[in-house]
């Protein structure tokens, strides 16, 4: 009974990973790309880990997969914050159709938005 459920969750995870990759190609600037890659890849990889846990149960592999999933949930967003803050301070501008930049006006002296051409 558990085995088909595990396979279904693994395939859902792979599907979300694929969507994250498509978003990486289609979205306009680094900030929107970080959004898709963080969200979809975190849930996709977490789904893979849960699927492996359901397939193997409380064996060595299963428990390792579960711990890996928990670490993914904790560390992936932190990496994304660091990348985003780093690129803002480095001076990469937001996409030209962004409507507001509170961080730029308060911390970096002016909105960091591309000029519309």
């Amino acid at each position: 009974m558990i085995s088909p459920v595990g396979w279904i969750i693994i395939w859902i995870g792979i599907l979300f990973n694929l969507l994250g990759t498509v978003g990486l190609v289609r979205f306009p600037d680094i900030y929107n790309r970080l959004q898709t890659s963080t969200k979809c890849v975190t849930l996709g990889s977490f789904g893979l880990m849960i699927g492996i846990f359901l397939l193997h149960g409380f064996s060595q592999t299963g428990i390792k997969a579960l711990i890996c999933g928990a670490f993914l949930l904790l560390t992936n967003p932190v990496g994304a914050h660091a990348l985003m803050k780093g690129s803002l301070h480095y001076g990469i501008k937001l996409w030209k159709e962004s409507i507001v930049d509170r961080y730029g006006t308060e911390k970096l002296g002016g909105e960091q938005i591309e000029e519309k051409s």
Binding site: F16, L19, G20, V22, G23, R26, F27, P28, D29, Y31, N32, Q35, T36, K39, C40, L43, L94, W95, E97, S98, I99, V100, D101, R102, Y103, G104, E106
Partner: peptide, 21 residues
């Protein structure tokens, strides 16, 4: 994830990004 999937696959890309406080 469903929200991001919708924005990814929508032909017109419904985006209105910005940084708020």
């Amino acid at each position: 994830n469903l929200d991001v999937a919708y924005r990814t696959l929508h032909p017109q890309r419904p985006l209105k990004p910005g940084i708020v406080k």
